[in-house]
């Protein structure tokens, strides 16, 4: 804690992502704490809305940030920092799903295009809440809309993280909003 009671990371909140990463690479742990404070909420929301339960979402957010720390030397300011971070996040999630698939002899399956999270399904008796609606999107649509809405990425940043053209982000967002419109506003869960 600093003398004024704030965490050292909070004192860095006015610095840019690139500057914080640069300081982190030089061994300034308070700069990296600033990155954590800035992005922890976005990461947690991203993983949670992608279908992880609360505990797994927190584990994945931690894993992502620890990997980010390990890769701090590799980040170059020419690319978008959020895109860099969420690329790591996607890989962390994919790794966890793969390991879970291998380690559990029973039950869990690799995600397919439109796999529903059973925990989410069961928590939504009226089938009309946001979690359930998101669970009805295909993996690609869900990942795009969750990254933009909850991760706070711009279309170009999402395109970079997802390694797709910006136009594809735009079309995925359109199709996702159309389906969410059906699900959330028109009760079209049978669609």
């Amino acid at each position: 804690m600093s003398e004024n009671g704030a965490h050292p990371g909070e004192a860095n909140q006015r610095l840019s992502d690139a500057r914080l990463m640069e300081l982190s690479a030089r061994g300034d742990s308070s700069a990296f704490a600033g990155i954590i404070l800035r992005y922890q909420g976005a990461l947690l929301n991203f993983f949670r809305r992608m279908g992880a339960d609360t505990g797994d979402a927190e584990d994945l957010a931690q894993e992502t940030l620890i990997r980010l720390y390990e890769y701090r030397d590799r980040y170059r300011p020419i690319s978008s920092f959020p895109a860099f971070l969420f690329t790591i996040a996607r890989h962390a999630r994919a790794d966890m799903l793969r390991k879970a698939f291998r380690s559990r002899a029973s039950g869990m399956e690799e995600p397919d295009e439109c796999q529903e999270d059973p925990a989410v399904v069961s928590s939504s008796d009226d089938c009309m809440d946001v979690e359930y609606a998101l669970s009805r999107l295909s993996e690609k649509l869900k990942e795009t809309v969750v990254m933009v809405i909850y991760g706070g990425l711009t279309y170009p940043e999402a395109a970079e993280a997802l390694q797709i053209p910006v136009g594809t982000v735009k079309s995925r967002m359109f199709f996702a909003f159309e389906k969410l419109r059906d699900l959330l506003l028109k009760g079209g869960f049978d669609a």
């Binding site: 965490h7 704490a33 404070l37 922890q40 909420g41 947690l44 929301n45 931690q62 809440d129």
Partner: peptide, 14 residues
């Protein structure tokens, strides 16, 4: 969608 946004984790996460 925004209404379903979760709060940022507490200090223990950091």
């Amino acid at each position: 969608l925004q209404s379903a946004r979760l709060d940022a984790p507490d200090g223990r996460f950091l």
